[in-house]
Amino acid sequence: MANNGVQPEMGKEQIMFMAEKEMEYRVELFNKLTQTCFRKCAEKSYKESELNMAENSCIDRCVSKYWQVTNLVGQLLGTNPPSM
């Protein structure tokens, strides 16, 4: 998406539209990532409201792995993953 490979005759409206879809895509990616890593990392007993060390490092690794999966799937789809 974004600018690469865009035909020169693509109008301003279309650029705005693509940018909007890209934003929406990224917001949705962020939301799904947040929900999924919360499910995988948070201790569900909710004994405290702080994140403990185990949870913190789980989050960091979860985000990192989710990102890699996003890129891997993007490669398989033969497109760049929507430019990130």
Partner: peptide, 27 residues
């Protein structure tokens, strides 16, 4: 919009099914 959503869902599903250990930061 649909294909971007499908892409997001695919990533979520395969991540959920395939990744369960968080002892390293790389797959």
């Amino acid at each position: 919009r649909d294909s971007l959503r499908m892409y997001n869902s695919l990533v979520e599903r395969c991540f959920t099914d395939c990744v369960d250990s968080f002892r390293r930061k790389t797959l």
